[in-house]
Simulated assay, not measured.
Amino acid sequence: MGFDLSKIVSGAMTAAAGSVRSTVRPLTYVHVTGSPVYDPITGGTITPTTEYETRGVIARYRSRDIDGSRIQASDLKLLIAYDDLPVTPKLIDHAMIAGVRWNVHNLAADPAGALHILQMRKP
């Protein structure tokens, strides 16, 4: 009798979210791959990125965790399984969730090393 690793990780994601208001959703993770470069056509700069279609558990922070500065009431906790995101998240990355941009504000990893735990904030 084997075990289904994706089922275990999915269960861990939901448990780590710590909220009954959490839900697994599809999202686009936008990973910055280089420094901004000059665009001669627009006269501005562009930042090279790579987009990854993935999924994650999205949860609100518990009221006892919100301090108004480090964690704001509007912040989201985003949990993505390591296997679902082939890059290491960075503070300059962002995610598009239901058409809304959320910037990576803080990063953590769970002790088991199965999940990326990201604090997300609207720009």
Score class of each variant (00 low, 15 high):
Lys7Val: 10
Lys7Thr: 13
Lys7Met: 13
Lys7Gly: 13
Ile8Arg: 11
Val9Ser: 08
Ser10Trp: 13
Ser10Met: 14
Gly11Glu: 13
Met13Leu: 15
Thr14Gly: 12
Ala15Thr: 14
Ala15Ile: 10
Gly18Asn: 11
Gly18Phe: 06
Gly18Thr: 06
Ser19Val: 10
Arg21Pro: 08
Arg21Met: 14
Ser22Thr: 15
Thr23Gly: 12
Pro26Ser: 11
Pro26His: 02
Pro26Gly: 06
Pro26Ile: 00
Leu27Trp: 00
Thr28Leu: 07
Val32Arg: 02
Thr33Cys: 05
Gly34Cys: 02
Ser35Leu: 07
Pro36Asn: 03
Pro36Trp: 00
Val37Tyr: 07
Val37Ser: 15
Pro40Thr: 01
Ile41Met: 12
Thr45Tyr: 11
Thr45Met: 07
Thr45Phe: 06
Thr47Tyr: 01
Thr47Glu: 01
Thr49Trp: 01
Thr50Leu: 00
Glu51His: 10
Tyr52Cys: 03
Tyr52Lys: 03
Gly56Asp: 12
Val57Gly: 13
Ala59Val: 05
Tyr61Ile: 10
Arg62Asn: 13
Asp65Thr: 09
Ile66Cys: 09
Ile66Met: 07
Asp67Ile: 08
Asp67Pro: 06
Gly68Ala: 05
Gly68Thr: 05
Ser69Met: 08
Arg70Gln: 12
Gln72Asn: 06
Ala73Glu: 12
Ala73Ser: 14
Asp75Ile: 09
Asp75Cys: 04
Lys77His: 03
Leu79Trp: 03
Ile80His: 02
Tyr82Gln: 13
Asp84Trp: 08
Pro89Phe: 01
Lys90Ser: 10
Lys90Ile: 02
Leu91His: 08
Asp93Glu: 04
Asp93Gly: 02
Ala95Ser: 04
Met96Pro: 05
Met96Asn: 11
Ala98Leu: 12
Ala98Cys: 10
Ala98Ser: 15
Gly99Cys: 04
Gly99Ala: 06
Trp102Leu: 06
Asn103Glu: 15
Val104Phe: 01
Asn106Lys: 11
Asn106Gln: 12
Asn106Pro: 04
Asn106Leu: 05
Leu107Gly: 03
Leu107Lys: 10
Ala108Pro: 07
Ala109Trp: 06
Ala109Lys: 13
Asp110Lys: 05
Asp110Leu: 08
